Simulated assay, not measured.
Amino acid sequence: MQAVRAEAIAAGTPPLTSVEVVNKVLSQDSSNDTFLKNADIAECSTRSRSSGEDVLRSQLAAEKECSVALQAQMDVVNKDNERTKSDFLMLKSQ
Rank of each mutant, 00 (worst) to 15 (best):
Ser58Pro: 01
Lys24Arg: 12
Gln73Ile: 08
Ser67Glu: 14
Ala72Arg: 11
Asn78Arg: 14
Thr17Leu: 09
Ala62Met: 14
Thr34His: 07
Val19Gln: 05
Asn78Gln: 13
Ala3Leu: 10
Pro14Phe: 04
Leu26Ser: 06
Cys44Val: 10
Arg49Cys: 11
Lys24Val: 01
Ala3Lys: 09
Glu82Asp: 10
Gly52His: 13
Val21Met: 13
Ser50Tyr: 08
Phe88Val: 02
Gly12Arg: 03
Glu53Pro: 07
Pro14Val: 01
Val4Lys: 09
Asp40Tyr: 09
Glu82Trp: 02
Leu89Asn: 13
Ala8Pro: 01
Leu56Ser: 12
Ser31Tyr: 08
Ala10Trp: 02
Arg57Gly: 10
Val77Lys: 08
Ala11Ile: 00
Ser67His: 14
Asp75Gly: 05
Pro14Tyr: 01
Glu65Phe: 10
Lys24Ser: 05
Asp54Asn: 13
Met74Ile: 15
Ser67Trp: 15
Ser93Leu: 09
Gly12Ser: 04
Ala39Gln: 11
Phe88Met: 14
Asp33Glu: 13
Thr13Lys: 08
Ala10Ile: 02
Ile9Arg: 14
Glu53Ser: 14
Lys64Phe: 11
Gln73Gly: 12
Arg47Ala: 10
Leu60Ser: 07
Glu63Trp: 11
Leu36Glu: 09
Ala10Gln: 02
Thr46Tyr: 01
Lys64Leu: 13
Gln2Gly: 05
Val77Cys: 09
Val55Gln: 10
Ala62Val: 13
Arg5His: 03
Glu82Pro: 00
Ile41Gln: 00
Ala42Gly: 06
Val21Asp: 02
Ser30Phe: 06
Arg5Asn: 05
Ala6Ser: 12
Ser45Gly: 09
Leu16Trp: 07
Gln28Leu: 09
Arg83Asn: 03
Thr13Val: 03
Gln73Ser: 12
Leu16Thr: 03
Ala8Cys: 00
Gly12Trp: 04
Glu7His: 12
Ser86Phe: 11
Lys85Val: 06
Asp87Val: 13
Lys85Arg: 05
Ala42Ile: 08
Asn23Gly: 01
Val77Leu: 14
Met1Thr: 05
Ala62Phe: 10
Ser27Asn: 10
Ser31Asp: 10
